[in-house]
Amino acid sequence: MIKDITIGQYFNGKSVLHRLDARMKIILTVVFIVSIFLCQNFWSLGLMVLFTLMTVIVSGVPFKMVLRSIKPIAIIVTFTSLINIFYVRGGTSLVDWRFIHITTNGVFTALFMATRIVCLVVISSMLTYTTTPTMLTDAIEKLLSPLKIFKIPVSTLAMMMTLALRFIPTLVDEIDRITNAQKARGANLDDGNFVQRIKALVPIIVPLFVSSIRRAVELADAMDCRCYTGGPGRTRMKQMKFHLRDFASLFVILVLIAGIVVLNYYFGAVLVK
């Protein structure tokens, strides 16, 4: 049933990655994405792939699920790879037949690009696989809290984000119910041209709006009753605390960067200028 949808793609688990502080995970992800672009040869690239694989294994998220997150980008990766292969010049010529010219630089660039994109997507999805949307929201709120000095209402924005996450399943459920009710009155939602289809949505969108407004009014009352003011003085039950493992993880990623730099230095760049 539609009720069972999960927001984001959290995979329930107990691995070290799950237990890492969400703020640290966001920082680590950013650092990793930067380090992806540091790689200059196959050795450092290999190290990065190895690290990505290790992360997946440690997280305990099944490979099948990880592959699913790559699927949507497969076409983009293939397409950019092909363009790189046929258009990038430089290095040794591999094929030179009529209008087709393929060089080592082209093949290498394609390989690099593909690997980088895949690693980037896999690591980012590891963040969402191991962190609940709630933890992510809290972490973003904390990381952005310095912006408060510029009068940006960070906690209000975070509250809005939480409420959005909370009500998405409720609204999805509601859309499902309204759609069925209108179908039972003979609404035809599946056939017709573009304009007809848009028109057919009116009987669903109007009730959805009406009920959302009603929900919003009731929710506002409920929040008032529980003394929400949106102002300062609010405390949080769940305090975020960095543990030893968080610092250890930071150390691991620094070692990775050091490794990439060293390998880059020893084996030189693979692309020929």
Binding site: T134, T162, L163, L165, R166, R214, R215, L219, A222
Partner: peptide, 12 residues
């Protein structure tokens, strides 16, 4: 309140 859905604010 009456409607349980419209008074729960958090995702957990």
């Amino acid at each position: 309140f009456q409607n349980p859905d419209n008074q729960i604010v958090a995702t957990i």
